[in-house]
Design a protein around this nucleic acid. Structure first.
Lengths: 341, 341
DNA sequence: CGTTAGCACTCGTCAGTGTTGAGTGCTAAC
DNA sequence: GTTAGCACTCAACACTGACGAGTGCTAACG
């Protein structure tokens, strides 16, 4: 059996209705809808077909139908008609972003808030991976006897820092000049080149071998590892407003997932370029999120490095709106952050 | 009517029981308890008295009694017998803290996790207020044409940074030497002295008046304002495990409060020195948290500046354990963080 | 032959009802 | 002063029947 136009129409109507009401939708409801000119009986026949094809499911006899994950997949692939955000909203979003743009992390945080606010779902933003950034400046600052704080500034204005041990007897001025050398040698180098540059430096400046060794180790670790603070979550309480989470246990396990940044990172794993990626239900690999959908987009900082922004919500999600918002937000974020470049 | 020893004993037994079960406790339950050698009937008479005195309440006739806020207050003030954490646990906590002690914010974050893990409630930690810290180092780093990143390192190893505009025509070396001057002039100065020092600098170096002006403004703002990232929350999902939050709406409003850092800050407002502060139910001023108790302690960094750590849970909270954990944690945190000094 | 009206059937929801058991307050006896 | 006994209260629970939303099937209609 194939899907003809009428089946598409009816399926779409069912999904649209279910997205807003979260209640199984019956034939009469669809029949009454404008744009569908058939009687409930006809609709019922079609619904029966759609169920056989795996697009609909019935929670129990004598209940209406609800869309299956397969239906959502079809919906986002073919049936969706992307709407543009209205100008007011665009304006508002942009304002919120630029407003606090003193600092990259601040921007990202408020972006998460705006996202979850605009969609009423939970938003997640992953900061650009350090490895894809370039070093702009390295600075050692003495904080204690044999301890210094190493500060790494990248081309996106993102700052990373770590404590390192330094040999005894180095005063602030020494660290100052070492920083200078480090910066000169590492500036604008991508990750691959850092190790190379260090090798050269080690040859030239044998007297600070231990310090440099530790510094290299810390830089590499920082560049590669992604640490917790790189993930920002907004509106985690939002999902509790939806009936699918009125069961406290479901809600709790959902929130527990949000607290484990590792899982979140896994879920948001790369999606190329500017496009929108949609994972419906079990399509994302985390069992605890199997009745969630995850929509992600990406944003750019500078030319290469990019981060991910996404929305997590029930499979019954307003895909239309979420896609619009994410798309717009991705661009806006890229704009704002690339100013620093 | 006065509280005699037997009333104390019974009240304590009731609270102990209610804390663990969350169910109204009846006379028979108490009577069976070891240490209480009276029949249910006697207990009933005493309970009746305690109710009249406002220490107990009955959800409805023919239900057991539950402790009132007044009872909890009495409990924490007089009846509590602080227990020491067992050595294993102390050891474990310390390990977790020291383990990741490369960076102040990392320590604080893992402290929050340990806290909520050890208590099964929600934990909140406020980083030391910047105003109480001393500046250790100031560094300007060029990031774009007319933009620089100003990095402020404090004596606790806490790093703050902000974008500032710089006059055209300043290259990295210029910023370098300005940073040097800034550091020399501001190092080890507390907040009050910063403005004064700036005034002097402005007199000496008239040519960079605008840059210095902006820098001062940013520093002052950073020192005074407390920004969102200063508050770390752990185990926000923990509370959902308790029956008092099995109502999704309650849970949601609780989580909403956690997301508004301003409210949290208000709730955790200062409590002098090392002591433990307990606010039961309406004693904290936030209506949304009126059926929560909040227990806070503080930790020190260096000599003056201190931060707050706290636990938020249902009024029916295991005060004994929470107090022990907070007390130990406050000390441990002070130890770990003061190493940087 | 596609569409629709009619009808019997299913099943979740809701209100009403009786039973059970935990717990109380009171009284009288120890 | 303490306790046993008893009548009373009331939430929780299971059961019931009425109701209604919704379905599938069949027969009639254009």
């Amino acid at each position: 059996m194939q899907l003809d136009d009428r089946k598409y129409l009816i399926l779409q109507a069912i999904i649209d209705d279910y997205i807003t009401t979260a209640m199984p939708v019956g034939s009469r409801t669809i029949s009454r809808k404008s744009g569908v000119g058939y009687s409930p009986a006809t609709i019922r026949n079609e619904m029966s077909d759609l169920e056989e094809l795996g697009y609909l499911a019935q929670p129990h006899t004598s209940a209406g139908r609800i869309p299956s994950n397969k239906a959502y997949r079809l919906y986002v692939d073919h049936l969706i008609k992307t709407v543009k955000l209205n100008p007011d909203e665009r304006e508002r979003i942009h304002e919120h972003l630029v407003d606090k743009s003193r600092r990259v992390e601040g921007v990202i945080r408020s972006a998460a808030d705006v996202l979850s606010d605009a969609t009423k779902y939970t938003s997640v933003i992953v900061a650009p991976k350090l490895g894809t950034l370039r070093i702009k400046h390295v600075q050692l600052v003495p904080v204690a006897e044999k301890t210094a704080l190493m500060i790494i500034v990248t081309n996106a204005g993102i700052v990373k820092d770590a404590m390192i041990r330094v040999p005894e007897g180095l005063d602030a001025d020494d660290l100052y000049s070492i920083s200078r050398v480090l910066t000169q040698n590492l500036a604008d180098k991508p990750l691959e080149a850092v190790r190379q540059a260090f090798a050269e430096m080690l040859r030239d400046a044998a007297d600070h071998r231990r310090l440099l060794g530790e510094a290299l180790q810390v830089i590499e670790q920082k560049l590669e590892s992604e640490d917790q603070s790189d993930i920002i979550i907004g509106g985690s309480a939002n999902l509790l407003g939806y009936p699918e989470y009125s069961d406290v246990n479901k809600a709790r396990s959902f929130l527990a997932v949000l607290e484990s940044k590792d899982t979140i990172r896994k879920v948001l794993s790369r999606n190329g370029g500017m496009e929108i990626t949609i994972r419906i239900g079990p399509e994302n690999q985390v069992p605890a999120l199997n009745d969630c959908s995850i929509v992600t987009a990406s944003y750019r900082v500078g030319d290469h490095s990019n981060g991910t922004l996404g929305i997590i919500g029930p499979t019954r999600m307003n895909y239309n709106r979420v896609i619009s918002v994410l798309d717009f937000m991705g661009r806006a974020l890229s704009d704002v952050l690339s100013e620093y470049k």
